[in-house]
């Protein structure tokens, strides 16, 4: 009973996070302007990181946490680079 409950709630939260990724993906594909797309990409990164965390809870594999950490770092750097590019037209000044 107990394990059924927790398995199902992990599954439900994964479905919710998948839907959230779908929303972010919609904004990324659709977004009228470039800044909307970057915002969608940033949200997509964070949602993917959270999805990896739930996978980590489910399988107790610490590799997932390292992957989530790397996504958190690289997503930040790429979003910053995109935002800088929008502002000045170049990334490194």
């Amino acid at each position: 009973m107990n394990e059924l409950f927790i398995i199902w709630s992990i599954l439900a939260s994964q479905v919710l996070l998948g839907l959230a990724m779908g929303c972010a993906l919609f904004r990324m594909a659709r977004g009228p302007r470039a800044q909307d797309r970057i915002l969608g990409l940033d949200a997509l990164y964070i949602n993917a990181m959270l999805l990896l965390l739930t996978f980590g809870v489910r399988t107790a594999n610490s590799i997932y946490f390292e992957a989530a950490l790397i996504i958190a770092l690289l997503g930040f750097v790429s979003s910053i680079a995109f935002a800088k590019f929008l502002m000045r037209g170049e990334v490194i000044e």
Binding site: A12, S13, L17, L19, R27, L39, A43
Partner: peptide, 11 residues
């Protein structure tokens, strides 16, 4: 995950 979904729905 519900709060995250609400935030992404805001997008």
């Amino acid at each position: 995950s519900a709060i995250t979904l609400a935030g992404s729905m805001g997008l």
